[in-house]
Amino acid sequence: MSDSGISMLLGHASAQMLWLWFIGAFVLGGALVYGVMKAGNLRRSERAQLDRNTEARQRQEDPYKRPT
């Protein structure tokens, strides 16, 4: 059995670990992209509710703030 490429340089176990690192990085990257895409999209009603909650919290924390 002859080794070639990466496994010749790093050894059989190290080559397997390298592939696991690549697969793990790919899965993590996919999860991050999915999370960013889902977090950036709010429906109109959700955005309005978020704005109302933000304004209420700001009035609660600073009652002298002018209403907009």
Rank of each mutant, 00 (worst) to 15 (best):
F22C: 06
L9P: 01
L28P: 02
N41E: 03
A25L: 15
R59K: 13
P67Y: 04
D51M: 15
I23Y: 07
S14C: 07
M17P: 02
G30H: 04
L50E: 11
R57Q: 06
D51C: 05
Q49G: 07
L28T: 12
A31V: 14
G30L: 09
G35N: 07
A39M: 08
P67R: 13
E55R: 13
A48E: 15
I6K: 07
G5M: 02
Q60E: 15
F22I: 12
W19A: 14
A13D: 14
R47F: 04
K38P: 00
M8R: 01
A39D: 09
L20T: 12
A15L: 03
G24P: 05
V36R: 13
P67M: 02
M17T: 04
V33G: 03
D3I: 00
M8Y: 05
H12K: 15
R47W: 07
D51L: 13
F26S: 11
G29T: 11
G40Y: 00
R52V: 05
D3L: 10
A48Q: 09
H12R: 15
I6S: 01
V33W: 10
L10Y: 08
M17V: 03
R47T: 05
A31H: 02
G11H: 05
E46K: 10
L10S: 01
W21Y: 12
S7D: 02
S4C: 04
N53Y: 07
Q58Y: 06
R52Q: 13
H12Y: 08
L10R: 01
A31I: 15
L28Q: 11
S2K: 13
K65S: 08
R43C: 03
R57A: 13
Q58S: 04
G40M: 04
G11P: 02
E55V: 09
L10A: 11
M1A: 10
Q58N: 04
Q49S: 12
M1V: 08
Q60V: 03
R43S: 15
G40H: 01
S45P: 02
W19Y: 12
G40T: 07
F22K: 14
N53P: 00
Q49V: 01
K65Y: 05
R59W: 08
L9G: 01
N41S: 03
G29H: 06
Q49W: 08
D3H: 03
W21P: 00
E55F: 06
S14R: 05
G35S: 11
R43F: 05
F26N: 07
L42S: 04
G11D: 00
K65P: 00
S2V: 08
Q16I: 14
V27R: 06
E61H: 09
E46G: 10
K65T: 12
